[in-house]
């Protein structure tokens, strides 16, 4: 169907769209399509959510202090690794 074809075409713009870097023209076209295509709306929302979830987790990934100390030691910079900088 015509609509399905349209969806496929738009998938290639989704990444730029969620980044806010899509050209104005394509953006308008996509948003117009989203108004009456529930499936694409779900895909856009879950795509955004996917990226959100990834970014939320990022803050929890800090280097453990023992790993950092061993790194300083390995680099012969052990005297700098002892103090925990806040």
């Amino acid at each position: 169907m015509n609509k399905v074809h349209h969806c496929k075409e738009l998938v290639s713009s989704l990444s730029d769209y969620v980044d806010g870097s899509l050209s104005e023209e394509l953006c308008l076209e996509l948003e117009k399509h989203l108004l009456d295509c529930e499936n694409c709306t779900v895909v856009v929302n879950t795509l955004k959510k996917t990226i959100d979830i990834v970014q939320e987790q990022k803050t929890q990934d800090k280097i453990p202090s023992d790993v950092k100390q061993r790194l300083f030691y390995r680099l012969n910079l052990a005297e700098f690794g002892k103090e925990e900088t806040p």
Binding site: K58, D61, K62, I63, V67, K68, L71, F72, L75, L77, F80, G81, T85
Partner: peptide, 17 residues
Amino acid sequence: RHELAKMVELYSDQVYR
């Protein structure tokens, strides 16, 4: 050495991640 240590301090999180 101080500057190298600073580089490690500043960027070890991102490299580890």
